[in-house]
Nucleic acid binder design. Structure first.
Lengths: 162, 162
DNA sequence: GGAATTAAGGATATATCATATCCGAAAGCA
DNA sequence: TGCTTTCGGATATGATATATCCTTAATTCC
């Protein structure tokens, strides 16, 4: 049970977009080169963010992506679910139904006890991600990454945005 | 990010094994027929439980599987990890390292901030599973499943154990 | 208006992994 | 001796993640 690598890419891209000056867009090309990722494939992750209305896009030169909301209004779960989907990690196939000792239609009343426990754990995972805002990540990064590196990163990336 | 179906199978099988009379074993064949599962493939899940020392086995007729510990000494996480592995759901490929503005070897000091958050969520998932004991599941089942169905299920399965 | 650049999305190829089956070896029971 | 069992290896298949290519439409700049 491993998350898609696109989840990692999307999170890092959102962190960069969160530090962008007002009104500026960043292209797939710039984000791909900054992170050393395949441009065409990263594009799919960014499209997922776009479909989830987490980012806005514009075409043409100096076009690309920017956040659709402020970083404090975006949480980790939104980003993760945008590229990974909202499906729960545990799928109940209701194998108890195959028990030959159970009368037909018996299992209709309540979800399987095993599934309820697994879903509870899944919800704990989601809850944790839901509680972390993109602004929290940006805060951590600006504490941990030396200011000059952080600044030159944005200069580098904005130069590529034209 | 979906768990293997073998996780579901292992959990249901453990629930049955937990209700077994002292000293009795249950074969793969019996467990497969009870749940309507492919015997050969279910066998792989049970082998995983065996390798994790959650169940004990014996060969020959009337052989099969039984729990290696009491149900209150087995938690959900042990069972899930036995078949799914202990790897975290998020793998950090350290793409920040590709940032051309960072000096080489800069990222060695601390794990990536993104990864730390994802791992925290992963740990919340594991914590929830760790807190649920197999005996809790058995308790829930004996509350929810009518006693006569529960009893006839074990009669059915023990008849196949010889 | 024309050239360059961009996101969007469809089509396709490849690699990895989950799913599933089969077989032989070793061990226990009648 | 013959039957049953677990165990592990080998193999096949299907689904999905990864990756690339191409076309279309929109936007900017000259």
């Amino acid at each position: 049970m491993i998350l898609k690598s696109q989840v990692e890419w999307a999170l890092h891209c959102c962190a960069i977009l969160a530090g962008l000056p007002e009104g500026r867009y960043l292209s797939t090309k710039a984000l791909a080169e900054l992170h050393g990722l395949p441009k065409e494939y990263l594009s799919k992750a960014l499209q997922s963010l776009s479909q989830a209305s987490l980012v806005e896009t514009t075409l043409g030169p100096s076009g690309g992506y920017r956040l659709a909301k402020t970083p404090s209004d975006i949480n980790f779960l939104e980003i993760v679910e945008a590229v990974e989907g909202k499906a729960r990690s545990f799928t109940c196939t209701n194998i108890r139904e195959n028990n030959p000792c159970r009368p037909a239609g018996y299992c209709d009343s309540k979800p399987c006890a095993v599934a309820r426990i697994m879903w509870e754990a899944d919800e704990a995972w989601r809850d944790t991600l839901r509680r972390v805002r993109l602004s929290d990540l940006v805060g951590t990064l600006s504490e941990e990454v030396p200011a000059d590196i952080w600044r030159s990163t944005f200069e580098w990336v904005l130069k590529r945005a034209g």
